[in-house]
Design a protein around this nucleic acid. Sequence first.
DNA 1: GCAAAATGTCAAGCAAGCTTGACATGCTCG
DNA 2: CGAGCATGTCAAGCTTGCTTGACATTTTGC
Lengths: 68, 68
Amino acid sequence: MENRLKELRAERGWSQADLAERLDVSRQTVNALERGKYDPSLPLAFRIARVFGRPIEAIFTPGQEDET
Amino acid sequence: MENRLKELRAERGWSQADLAERLDVSRQTVNALERGKYDPSLPLAFRIARVFGRPIEAIFTPGQEDET
DNA sequence: GCAAAATGTCAAGCAAGCTTGACATGCTCG
DNA sequence: CGAGCATGTCAAGCTTGCTTGACATTTTGC
């Protein structure tokens, strides 16, 4: 699963810690998500979508794994 | 998190097992999702959205938990 | 060049998502 | 009635998502 977290965060001039606070998760979680270590839960994906004012589909895109 | 799984599945006349097969998960998982036992992972949410031809936001809606 | 802030990373542990297998119940329809 | 399908449910077990705490490395800016 690919995502535009880093890009969207940068646009807003937020640190990973800033974003983590807005999402109510740990800084390490934001870091792991940006680096593609794992995917967020659906509830967290909704919070991310809300923070950035975009639909989930505009932030996350299923990669090779889910394409068929 | 609320969802319209049961409704959308019924519209198509599919059994839980049918849907499970299309989503590549177990029948018990579909049953648990419909009954709100837990939320799907984000990758599974994407597959569900694709199977029903609707955006994730049109199928799942964060409840009280995520509203503030 | 130095200090502080930001980012990356690791480990251990708990919680959530999903699996298989089994069994109970209910529904439909020959 | 009886067979078969659909649904609900439980338990045990594995994997993934997320946490805290600690420490190393990179970036920023004075």
